[in-house]
C-alpha cells in the first residue's frame, strides 16, 4: 500500500514539471509582455517609454533568457515558493493563501452535501424503480444538473429577487460558508453535480436488489432498513466513491463560474483577474494547484476504494482506472 502511494506520487513529479514548463513557455513566448500590458492598462499607451520598461524588466529579472527564469522558478517551486506576482508585486503564496481557503470550503462543502443528499435520494429512487417517485427524483435531478451553472445562477437570482421577492438584493461577495450569502452559490454548486451521484447510486441499488444475499436477508426477516444499511450500502457505495472523485474536476470548473457570478474572492476569481494581465507566476501557480488537487484527490479515491471493496485491494497494484 505504502509503496503504491509512493509510486503514484513519484509519477506526479514529471507530470507537474511538464505542465509547469508548458504553461510557463506558453505565457513567456505567447502572451506578450506583462510589463507592457501593465502600462497599457494603467496609464494608457502614451506614457510608457522603452527605457522605463527595460528598467522595470531588469529589476524584476524578466530580461533574462527563458531557461534561466524557468530554472529559477522551478528551484523556488521545489522549495515551496510560488514566486512573486509580476503585476501586483505580492508573493503568490500569500495570494493563494488568501483565496484558496474560500474555494476549498466551497468545494468540500459541495462534495459533502452532494454525498449526503445524493446517496439517499439515489437509494430511494432505486427502491422505487420506475414508479412516480423514481421518475420525479431522476427527472428533476437530470433537469437541474443538465442546465449549466452560468444559466442556473443568474436565473435563480432573477426568479428569487425579482419574481418572488424573497431576497432583497443580489448575494454578492463572501462572508463565510455559513452566512446567508453562501446559500445561492452552494445551491448552484450542489445541484450542478448531484444527478451523477443519484444515477450511480440508483443503478447500483438496482443491481444489488436482485442479488441472492439481499433476497436471503429479506427471507430471514431482516428489517428493510437493516437490509439497506448492512447489505446494500457497501457494494453500492464503492462505485459512488469513484464517481465522487470524477466529479472533482467538474467542481473546480463549477467553482470558477460560480465565483464569477456571485463575486466570490476564490481561486477562480484570481485566475480570471490575473490571467488577463499575463502574470505568469500566478498563472502557473494556479494551473499547478488545479492539477495537483485533481491528482491528489484521485489518489485519495483510489486509496479509499480497496477499503470499501476488498477485491479491489488485490488488483490495485499496477491497474489503471
Amino acid at each position: 500500500m505504502g509503496q503504491y502511494i509512493l509510486r503514484r506520487i513519484l509519477y506526479w513529479i514529471p507530470a507537474l514539471l511538464l505542465l509547469a514548463l508548458s504553461v510557463y513557455a506558453m505565457a513567456f513566448f505567447g502572451a506578450g509582455d506583462p510589463i507592457k500590458l501593465m502600462f497599457l492598462r494603467e496609464e494608457g499607451d502614451v506614457t510608457y517609454d522603452a527605457q522605463r520598461l527595460d528598467a522595470i524588466r531588469r529589476e524584476k529579472g524578466l530580461d533574462r533568457p527563458f531557461l534561466v527564469q524557468f530554472g529559477e522558478y522551478t528551484w523556488h517551486l521545489v522549495q515551496g515558493d510560488l514566486g512573486m506576482s509580476v503585476i501586483s508585486g505580492r508573493s503568490v503564496n500569500d495570494m493563494i493563501g488568501a483565496t484558496a481557503p474560500v474555494s476549498f470550503q466551497i468545494g468540500l462543502a459541495t462534495v459533502i452535501l452532494v454525498a449526503l443528499l445524493g446517496i439517499p435520494l439515489g437509494i430511494i429512487a432505486g427502491l422505487n424503480h420506475n414508479n412516480w417517485v423514481d421518475n420525479s427524483i431522476l427527472g428533476s435531478a437530470l433537469f437541474i444538473s443538465g442546465i449549466p451553472s452560468y444559466v442556473v445562477g443568474p436565473m435563480l437570482m432573477v426568479f428569487l429577487v425579482l419574481g418572488l421577492g424573497i431576497m432583497k438584493t443580489t448575494p454578492y461577495g463572501w462572508e463565510g460558508l455559513f452566512s446567508k450569502k453562501a446559500i445561492l452559490p452552494m445551491f448552484v454548486m450542489v445541484f450542478g453535480s448531484i444527478a451523477i451521484i443519484i444515477r450511480q447510486t440508483r443503478s447500483g441499488v438496482l443491481e444489488v436488489l436482485s442479488e441472492d444475499y439481499v433476497r436471503t436477508a429479506r427471507a430471514k426477516g431482516v428489517p428493510e432498513f437493516m437490509v439497506i444499511v448492512r447489505h446494500m450500502l457497501r457494494p453500492v457505495l464503492t462505485p459512488v466513491v469513484t464517481v465522487l472523485g470524477q466529479m472533482l474536476i467538474g467542481i473546480v470548473n463549477g467553482a470558477i463560474i460560480v465565483e464569477k457570478i456571485f463575486g466570490i474572492p476564490g481561486l477562480g476569481r484570481l485566475t480570471i483577474d490575473f490571467t488577463y494581465g499575463v502574470d505568469y507566476p500566478v498563472i502557473v501557480a494556479i494551473t499547478l494547484i488545479g492539477a495537483f488537487l485533481v491528482m491528489a484527490l484521485n489518489l485519495l479515491v483510489d486509496i479509499t476504494y480497496p477499503l470499501l471493496d476488498p477485491r479491489a485491494a488485490q488488483a490495485m497494484t499496477g491497474v489503471e482506472e
Binding site: 504553461v23 505567447g30 502572451a31 474536476i249 473546480v252 470548473n253 498563472i283 494551473t287 488545479g290
Partner: peptide
C-alpha cells in the same frame, strides 16, 4: 489532460496564444 480543469486550460490557452 484530464487532470487539468477544463476551464482553467481554456483560459490559459486563450490568453497566452491569442496575442502571438
Amino acid at each position: 489532460t484530464r487532470s487539468m480543469p477544463a476551464l482553467l486550460l481554456a483560459i490559459v490557452i486563450n490568453l497566452t496564444l491569442k496575442v502571438p
